[in-house]
């Protein structure tokens, strides 16, 4: 079953020249960790806003748990939890009260909400801070409180809008562990991020968006694999004699290898090969091409391009 379905979703703010979300379509299956990756202003928060009933779409369709978010917002709200990009905790309440009242708004019974609050505070490492006010809570702690709060009514789909932006490395790792744990518990997670490594690390599939439009959608590894020459092999070579002509010969020989897409001469007698194949698959042909040129291979370095490169390829711009 699809936990989230988005069809040609469009949102144009009044007075804005362009749509913030422009005919976006994607589906998230139940239990998946789904990433929406894009630079600032790509429309991530707007997309989350529409999916969580906080904004009205100007076109298209969005369903969460099979329920139309525009038509039945109150039903949808019971199925989803939100961790917003901006801290919106209730500063008039203590940390524990934030959790308890949230559950009460969702109709969770008293005994049940007490127990869940205690459990979640424990899980989030906030057990001792439950009765503190929010005044001197760090960004990382506030984020944990918001995650705990969102889980109090046991949502089926959790939306996290840039959950680790602005956090210290330790808090980031904590958030990442949380996401993995939620996945293990079968909760569907939709998270937005502008960090490639985060998307690659956490998400089963990633939608790359820019200027409100979907550019690509696939598993992170598949997105990278589809890039032409997504794997690089850097060869360190030692030339026996007459280096100049040998280098040219080698380049020509390597370029002639069918599975090598591009050859780039590097300083220090190194050569970089770009390929879409597995390294092991092309190595024999490469070694064969090198044979008979009077050179010896002294080093080999294999690397994969990242999602950064996917974004660069799709938009011609750096992500940030």
């Amino acid at each position: 079953m699809n936990a989230v379905e988005v069809e040609n979703l469009t949102k144009k703010y009044p007075g804005a020249p362009q749509s913030a979300v422009d005919s976006l379509s994607f589906q998230v299956s139940s239990g998946e960790v789904f990433g929406v990756l894009g630079p600032n202003g790509a429309g991530k928060t707007t997309t989350v806003g529409v999916l969580t009933t906080r904004m009205r779409p100007t076109g298209g369709l969005a369903r969460v748990g099979g329920v139309d978010v525009a038509k039945e917002p109150t039903r949808v709200r019971r199925l989803l939890g939100v961790v917003p990009q901006r801290n919106n905790l209730d500063r008039s309440l203590s940390i524990r009260q934030n959790l308890l009242f949230h559950a009460a708004y969702h109709g969770v019974r008293r005994a049940e909400r007490r127990q869940r609050a205690a459990e979640l505070l424990e899980r989030m490492g906030l057990a001792e801070r439950g009765d503190d006010r929010l005044d001197n809570v760090s960004g990382g702690q506030a984020q944990r409180v918001m995650i705990a709060r969102a889980l109090m009514h046991e949502p089926q789909v959790l939306f996290l809008d840039e959950p680790s932006t602005g956090l210290d490395p330790q808090s980031r790792i904590f958030v990442h562990e949380c996401v993995r744990e939620l996945k293990d518990r079968g909760v569907t997670v939709v998270l937005t991020t502008h960090q490639m490594d985060e998307a690659a690390k956490l998400c089963d599939r990633v939608a790359i968006v820019d200027r409100g439009k979907l550019l690509a959608l696939d598993a992170p590894a598949a997105l990278v694999r589809e890039l032409p020459g997504s794997t690089t092999l850097t060869l360190s070579l030692e030339f026996a004699e007459s280096a100049e002509s040998a280098a040219e010969d080698v380049n020509a020989a390597l370029t002639a290898v069918e599975t090598v897409e591009r050859v780039e001469a590097m300083p220090g007698g190194r050569v970089r090969l770009y390929t879409s194949r597995e390294p092991g698959e092309i190595l024999p042909a490469v070694l064969k091409a090198l044979a008979g040129h009077g050179i010896s291979l002294t080093g080999l370095d294999v690397a994969q391009l990242g999602l950064e490169d996917v974004f660069l390829r799709l938009t011609g711009r750096e992500l940030r």
Partner: peptide, 15 residues
């Protein structure tokens, strides 16, 4: 400023 009311707007109560 505060947006504190958001959590209540996300409750299953009609706006």
């Amino acid at each position: 400023f505060s947006r504190e009311i958001e959590d209540r707007l996300l409750s299953p109560l009609p706006t």
